[in-house]
C-alpha cells in the first residue's frame, strides 16, 4: 500500500522544524520538500496493510502543528506478499 498526502503545517518556524524531524522519523513515512510559501509538505506513506496506512494518516492528522492532511494519491491494490491485506 502506497499513498501520498499533503500536510498543511502551522506554527512558528522552530516548531515546524521540530515537527518535520518527528514526521521524518515515522516508520514508512518519507517527506518531500517543505514549501515555506504554501506551508505544505508532501509525504508518502508506505505500509504493509490498508489498516496501517490509515493509522499513519490518522496519526499525521493528529500531530500538533498539522492543520490539515489532504490525500492526493492512493494505490490500494493488494500486494501478493500480504494476503491479510486483501480487504476486497
Amino acid at each position: 500500500m502506497i499513498a501520498s498526502v499533503v500536510a498543511t503545517l502551522e506554527g512558528p518556524p522552530n516548531a515546524t522544524a521540530r515537527l518535520l524531524s518527528s514526521l521524518r522519523a515515522l516508520p514508512g513515512v518519507e517527506t518531500g520538500p517543505f514549501d515555506e510559501t504554501t506551508r505544505r509538505l508532501p509525504i508518502t506513506i508506505e505500509s504493509p496493510t490498508p489498516m496501517a496506512l490509515e493509522e499513519t494518516t490518522r496519526h499525521l492528522r493528529e500531530c500538533r502543528g498539522v492543520a490539515f492532511v489532504d490525500v492526493v494519491f492512493v494505490h490500494f491494490e493488494t500486494e501478493p506478499e500480504h494476503p491479510e491485506a486483501d480487504f476486497r
Binding site: I2, V5, R40, I43, H75
Partner: peptide, 27 residues
C-alpha cells in the same frame, strides 16, 4: 522475478505518489 518486479512496481508507485504530492504542495 517476482521480488524484483514487486520492488520495481513499488518504487514506481512511490515515485508517482511523491510526484503527485509535491506537485500539489508546491503548486
Amino acid at each position: 522475478t517476482p521480488a524484483i518486479d514487486v520492488i520495481q512496481r513499488r518504487q514506481f508507485m512511490k515515485a508517482t505518489a511523491m510526484a503527485a504530492a509535491t506537485a500539489v504542495a508546491g503548486g
